[in-house]
Amino acid sequence: MRKDLVWLFAGILFFGLLYLLNWGVKAISTDLLVWIGAFLTLAILSFLYQDNAFYKFAEHLFVGVSAAYWMCMGFWNTLVPNLIAKLHPPIVKGVLPAIAEKPPEYWYIIPAALGIMFLMRLSPKAPWISRWALAFIVGTTTGLNLVRYLRSDFLGQIKSTLIPVIVVENGSLSVGGSFSNIVIVVGVLCGLIYFFFSKEHKGLFGVASRVGIYILMITFGASFGYTVMARISLLVGRMRFLLGDWMGLLQ
């Protein structure tokens, strides 16, 4: 607890100093909302040093606010138009006049019933009935996933690997092109071999599996290196907010 007090003191000192330094000198923001944003930004960034009272404050506030935000959004954006308006359109006349005219769709009694079944988990008497709703969700999603995977991820990838390993360009052999295509075909094959589970990775098979994991690592390394740029951009955005919008140090 004492450590938290130190943090609190340090924070007050920091903001106080900023306030003194900037008052009337620099164009620090006078917008209360910007100050709130800046305070929360700094509170989160302080986590980089160590966990502290400010971070904890921002975290708890964030959790509470977002839980309620999601709840309201879900109610107004999904439940009202996709359930209530379907079962009894006139009820939404005040909020969604465009939908209110449509005839009711009584099919929606099914999800309503399943939803209520799910909430039965909270009842001490029949929590087992919530499994029916769960089974509906899992069954439906799984059925949809099965064909989705079958179509996109998997068959599409096989088709695009169908490339010639000998590339002829303008009548002569293209060494570079052929090499690249060989790397692709061998890479795909070895990658697949790495994911063999029911055979020991020994001998030639082991070599192919090794090549497979090497190629996977090249990919992961490349993605890692590539993403650095995007992440730095995020930080630049936050720093622009702190230094520009809040402290007024940027033009």
Partner: peptide
Amino acid sequence: TAMQFPFVAAVCG
């Protein structure tokens, strides 16, 4: 909470 980053903040804490 259902939102991604508040969830992450809480798990880190």
